[in-house]
Amino acid sequence: MSINLTLLIVMGVLYACGIYLILERSLTRVLLGLMLLANATNILILAAGGYAGLAPLFNKATDSHEYNDPLPQALILTSIVISFAVTAFMLGIIYRTWSLARQDDIQDDVEDRRVARTPSFDAEDDAAVPVETSEFPLPHAEPAAPDDTGATVPAGATHMPAAAAAAEEKPGRRAPGTTAGPTGGEE
């Protein structure tokens, strides 16, 4: 009895390919990668069972060391069933992605991108409150128009007009001429 080197090499190759594939952006390749990883792990469990031996059917004439260890094979069966279910579900999701968006790539989280673009200036929390100097305020006191003041606020490394910063708070909209946020404006 000896260690099955072929099995170990196959396992290593499967792991390498699997890890390479799950790092791709294409969903189908990710799925293939996950399947390879699951199968590589099954081989690892098989290898964990030790040397190859006889089928574990009790026979008085056989010495107990000649049997194969049945437990890892039971574990592999369970793990095959589980990875089968997950693969089927992933296929469903990939098909659904394709029928919804006509693409096979992992898509960005839109809300996350929006939060990343949000300037540190917050129109409600951080805007300068107009100082009322008069003791008797005029009933129609003119509100400070940010467009005319030309005030700028720091936005990341650059400065941007306060009006534009306020406009950028708007979900999904962008004021014309606005500079990109701190992390750049990739959509």
Partner: peptide, 22 residues
């Protein structure tokens, strides 16, 4: 998609740990 892929990877890691422990 993100959720499933991350969960499956963590499960594979767990399974590898189980195999090595065994």
């Amino acid at each position: 998609v993100t959720y499933v892929v991350v969960s499956v990877v963590s499960s594979v890691l767990f399974l590898i740990a189980i195999a090595m422990i065994y």
